[in-house]
Design a protein around this nucleic acid. Sequence first.
DNA 1: GACCAGGTATTGC
DNA 2: GCAATACATGGT
Length: 278
Amino acid sequence: MDSRALDHTLGCGQCFRWRRLPDGAWEGVVGTRVLRVSPQNFGQAVQDAFWAGYFDMDTDYAKIRGQMCGFDPALARAVCFAPEIRILRQDPWEALCSFLLSQCCNIPRIMGMVERLCRAYGSPLGEDQYAFPRPEQLAAAREKDLRALGFGYRAIYLCAAARNAVEGKLDFGRIAALPLAQARAGLTELEGVGPKVADCVLLYGLHRMDAFPSDVWIKRAMKTLFPGREAADFGPWAGLAQQYIFHYSRCHPELFADERKERQKINKAALSFSPNEV
DNA sequence: GACCAGGTATTGC
DNA sequence: GCAATACATGGT
């Protein structure tokens, strides 16, 4: 795996605990392990079954890419922009908490929040690294504690999730065994989990490759780049297609400049009708 | 100093 | 069912 491949997979917005170092290597915490991975040692790292699983080495991505590129020229452009994206097999609990926090935040802010959460409640792993807190650890937190970390209205969502996990009402093993629609329904019973967060948990935490998280970027991209298409059109690899489209869109905001102008025009008009009067 | 961000729950029509 | 709105905050 070359450095471009690491950049694609770890920098495409699917994970929040990896950082790119000045020399092009990446450092991250997964479970209770810390890994510094570079193009030079990647092959050796995935000799270890744990990391092979995490990087999803058993999936033939080249084959899937081929099918995608033949399906739609716009999708082919997104694939060619960052072809080496792989869908990591992340921990579902961590994915749930991370994407509960992600609401109305940009990725740098999400990374900051997750970092503060781990420092406050996770187990130390040495060298200034902390594990993602387990449900029992997070269950000790009160809403005000989490608000103090800057989580805002998302604080109660984490409290509720931790409580449900500890009490056994939230069981990822049970959800993993369900068909997609039912798994999604099970997750959306949790406070603060709507269709987007549920699909993120399914795709990134339970590796359901047909889950298709639809956020602001994906909604924009679907309207502009894939008019008339919907998630199901992308088939069993819709989740991977979604990741290609998400990353491509975020790196090409100019594609949506017209829509942004429209939004600003509407905002301005709304303001002129209701000037601030304190 | 706006603008915007990997949304969700609630409310009102 | 669907649009509007509140919810909190910080990165750029």
